[in-house]
Nucleic acid binder design. Structure first.
Lengths: 238, 238
DNA sequence: CGTGGAGTTGACAAAGATCAATACTAGTGG
DNA sequence: CCACTAGTATTGATCTTTGTCAACTCCACG
């Protein structure tokens, strides 16, 4: 887990890199590619090196030249969920830059890697030049991608009842008093959303009900104890 | 599941719609918003109506004005996985339009809904005006989002061994002869990728090995019978 | 009144997690 | 060159969670 970066090797040109077919910038004109070449820097990192971490500010986009990088989130209990394995030609950190948000996952080199680095400064003017409508759509895309990834992590790390609880809290909204609302989904659809069997969902609802965290009347849900419900959505136990 | 569309109600203006805070276009200028108003059409659909289906061509973007729409994929065995519940202000179908690809999920109205519709034609020039680099990045974003969603569906509908099998085939690449490659991941990382315990992964590997579908030598994997391995990645059974 | 669909409950089986013990491997320092 | 050690991989036993199947209830609606 050393934090060394060497710069002995010379950077590959985006032009030739793109000729090899794979990679993010393949369709671009030679002009655009030489532009990238001018703006970018190049470096190598040893296996185990962290390229960026969740919560940190994105300062630019990495483009992997050789090696493999794993992108992952750490869920409750320290369990990792690998979101993506990036290989040569793949981009890292573009989501945070395009969405103008903090990184929401970690990136670690699984092998020694060579990466090009494109500072956000060179991307910002290009984004600024785009129509506000497009920028707004891009931001939406990024948010949605982050949300699905969150669900992927939940799905294999949280029990069905905990996922249900979190979903109920989401539906109940931000307020902190008790809340009453109508489920917009049937039990079957609830199951389809949570990734479980309908029976499992029903039993989980019954369990929450018996614990007096919610009150059930058909599709109507009343949150009786928001505090305990919230803690139930965080703790795998009980 | 009727396929009626009425147009009695009058469309809400994007300007006032955006004033309510939520929604995709909130940060936009009044100019841009009145531009949207000119381009868009408006309609209402009854509960149960399909707005678009996976595999169909995207002709524009929907913006939900009232009601709830479920976006879902249908996995093996006809089991639905709800990807997202869209409410007022949410966008539908933007991924396909921005990524210039077919819809990869279905959209169905869960309640009666009112939606505005922005034809792709009005978006295309805006995208075309953006830098090719940005367009390329957007395409990447869309592809990645689609992939994570696929993994979400897999996660709750396919057994661990099947997920592993599919992943091995992915790593083995496109060729159709036998293939030999080195796993770039440890058993633990394999587990972190697939969303399983390392022991489960090891046992699944051992099982595939016993069935003579692969040969294992530490991190090296040899695909012995690609055909049967492929069918094992599709069939939940056995 | 039926009739059908959604919801609920119980019994059981299957998949997978967890725990514990053991093997294997590569690097380290004598 | 040989133990020694730490990390990784493997295996078996057991427990938990969840899925599956079947019966049964509860309405809403014709």
């Amino acid at each position: 887990m050393k934090t060394v970066q060497t710069r002995t090797k010379t950077a590959p040109s985006c032009v030739s890199c793109s000729k090899q077919g794979r990679g993010a910038f393949c369709g671009l004109s030679t002009d655009a590619l030489t532009g990238l070449d001018r703006a970018k820097s190049f470096g190598t990192y040893p296996r185990g090196q962290i390229l960026f971490q969740a919560g940190s500010r994105a300062t630019g986009v990495h483009c992997l030249s050789s090696g493999i990088v794993k992108l992952y989130r750490v869920g409750a209990g320290g369990k990792e969920q690998i979101l993506r394995l990036a290989g040569p030609g793949d981009l890292l950190g573009h989501r945070a830059v395009l969405g103008e948000r903090l990184h929401d996952h970690d990136a670690e080199a699984m092998t020694d890697v060579e990466v090009c680095y494109l500072p956000a400064d060179t991307l910002a003017p290009l984004m600024a030049a785009a129509s506000p409508l497009v920028r707004s759509l891009v931001r939406k895309l990024v948010e949605e991608a982050a949300e699905v990834e969150g669900r992927l992590v939940e799905r294999s790390q949280l029990r069905a009842e905990v996922r249900l609880t979190a979903f109920l809290l989401h539906l109940a909204g931000k307020g902190d008093g008790p809340a009453r609302f109508e489920l917009p989904l049937s039990r079957q659809e609830l199951a389809d959303y949570l990734g479980a069997a309908p029976e499992t969902v029903i039993r989980a609802l019954a369990h929450l009900s018996k614990k007096r965290l919610i009150k059930l009347e058909g599709r109507f849900v009343e949150v009786l104890d928001r505090v305990r419900l919230t803690s139930a959505a965080e703790q795998p136990a009980d």
